[in-house]
Amino acid sequence: MPPVPDAGERRKDLIAGSVLLVLALAWTAAVWLTVPVGHGVGPRAFPFWLGVGLAVLSALLLLKGLRGGHGLDPPGEGEGSAAAPPVSAGRRLALVATVCGIIAAYGVLMQKIGFLPATVLTVSATLVVALGERRPLVVGGMAFGIALGAWLAFGKLLGAYMPRGTWISLF
């Protein structure tokens, strides 16, 4: 572990600082344009000043990234800080997109076709597509096991509400 912030650390500060600064400015502008002032300390005050606060702090972070200036030439992989496993940035991004896409799609499916079918579909798709699992017994067992287990435990035993499906409704 190097005692001084290394190039990777600085690069992270640069990325975080600039992205958050843009976000903060967009947020502040949106608040200013769309939220009414109201009376006294109205509905606009808090979100607006929070936006300003974030802008200032992210600017500080950006500055910290820029300072100490060996430029921004990360040697080799920027993502490859000591602890991270050797997975390329592209793969990592793809995984983030896959996981979040799966969760969102699962939510919509649940409403549309009901909890059981949506869960079977989601679990098997996750195993096959995202994790490259090919053994049918594992895929099928996991998919049906999790779906039925959750359905029986929550829906039947505990009496929680399970989405029934608006397109088709099997159960």
Partner: peptide, 12 residues
């Protein structure tokens, strides 16, 4: 485990 699944399939 396997038996449990079969049982739960049958039950459901």
């Amino acid at each position: 485990m396997q038996k449990g699944i079969i049982a739960s399939v049958a039950l459901s």
